[in-house]
Simulated scan of single mutants.
Amino acid sequence: MKSSPSGVQSTARTSAATTGNRPISAGFVYVITNRAWPEWVKCGHAISADKRLARYQTYSPMRDFVLVASVPFTNSRAGEFECHLELARRAHERRGEWFRMNAQAAARVITRVGRRVESQKEI
């Protein structure tokens, strides 16, 4: 049985606006995979999903992390929270920001959550 991956803590630059104690920052919620853990996906948030992927590559001598999907959110931290809730409902297992599930299914979840959350802002 494969062990679960060890996640790297997500960080994001923040803007001046805040909700409570948490800064609001626009950015992306992303799904990243690595063939070393084929059953697991990482869902996080960042200002730039491509730059986050590049950071992940420094942790692997094989440079084998793959960005499966990234979805823009006005508030990426809140978007990530909503995505984690939905992914947790569908995943076989959860370990922090890592979910044991199909990567394409995870991509569909964050896309669907993104549409729902961002469309509510237009109302």
Score class of each variant (00 low, 15 high):
Pro5Gly: 07
Ala106Leu: 07
His45Thr: 02
Leu85Gly: 15
Gln57Ser: 11
Trp98Arg: 03
Tyr30Thr: 04
Glu97Asp: 07
Arg52Ile: 12
Leu53Lys: 04
Asp50Val: 11
Met62Glu: 15
Gly7Thr: 11
Arg94His: 08
Gln9Cys: 00
Ala12Ile: 13
Glu86Asn: 13
Arg112Ile: 11
Pro61Lys: 09
Ala17Ser: 12
Gly44His: 03
Ala69Asn: 10
Gly27Glu: 03
Phe73Pro: 03
Phe73Cys: 00
Ala26Thr: 14
Met62Tyr: 10
Val109Tyr: 02
Val29Tyr: 06
Val8Asp: 08
His45Ile: 01
Ala91Tyr: 03
Ser10Tyr: 10
Ser60Lys: 05
Ala78Gly: 05
Ala16Trp: 08
Phe28Lys: 00
Ile32Arg: 01
Val71Thr: 06
Phe73Lys: 02
Glu97His: 04
Glu86Ala: 13
Arg13Ser: 08
Ile110His: 02
Asn75Ile: 04
Phe81Gly: 05
Phe28Ala: 02
Arg52Gln: 13
Val117Pro: 02
Ser119Gln: 14
Trp40Val: 01
Lys51Ile: 13
Gly96Trp: 00
Pro61Asn: 10
Glu82Thr: 08
Ser70Tyr: 06
Ser25Lys: 07
Glu97Phe: 01
Ser25Ala: 15
Pro72Tyr: 01
Arg55Thr: 04
Trp40Ser: 00
Ala49Arg: 00
Lys42Ser: 07
Phe65Met: 07
Val113Ile: 15
Gly44Met: 04
Arg94Glu: 14
Phe99Cys: 02
His45Glu: 09
Lys121Glu: 13
Ala16Glu: 12
Arg77Pro: 04
Asn102Ala: 11
Arg100Asp: 12
Arg22Trp: 04
Ser70Leu: 07
Gly7Lys: 06
Thr111Glu: 11
Arg95Val: 06
Thr11Lys: 12
Val113Arg: 05
Phe81Asn: 03
Arg77His: 08
Leu53Arg: 06
Arg52Asn: 10
Ala16Asp: 09
Cys83Gly: 07
Val117Asp: 08
Ala105Asp: 10
Ile110Ala: 05
Thr11Tyr: 08
Ser3Gly: 13
Ala107Leu: 11
Ile110Asp: 01
Gln104Ser: 14
Gly79Thr: 01
Trp98Phe: 15
Val68Asp: 06
Glu86Cys: 11
Thr74Leu: 12
Pro23Asn: 05
Arg77Gln: 09
Thr74Ile: 13
Ser70Gln: 15
Ala26Tyr: 11
Thr58Asn: 10
Ala78Gln: 06
Asn21Glu: 14
Arg108Trp: 07
Gly20Glu: 05
Val66Pro: 05
Asn75Cys: 08
Thr18His: 14
Arg116Met: 14
Arg100Val: 12
Ala26Asn: 13
Ala16Ser: 13
Val68Pro: 01
Asp64Leu: 03
Arg115Ala: 15
Arg108His: 02
Ser48Phe: 06
Ala17Arg: 09
His84Trp: 10
Gly20Tyr: 00
Arg95Thr: 00
Asn34Trp: 11
Arg13His: 07
Phe28Val: 04
Ser70Met: 11
Val109Asn: 05
Gly114Tyr: 08
Gly27Ile: 01
Cys43Thr: 09
Val113Ser: 09
Val68Ser: 07
Arg55Lys: 11
Asp50His: 10
Leu87Ile: 04
Arg115Leu: 13
Ser25Ile: 00
Arg100Ile: 12
Arg77Val: 06
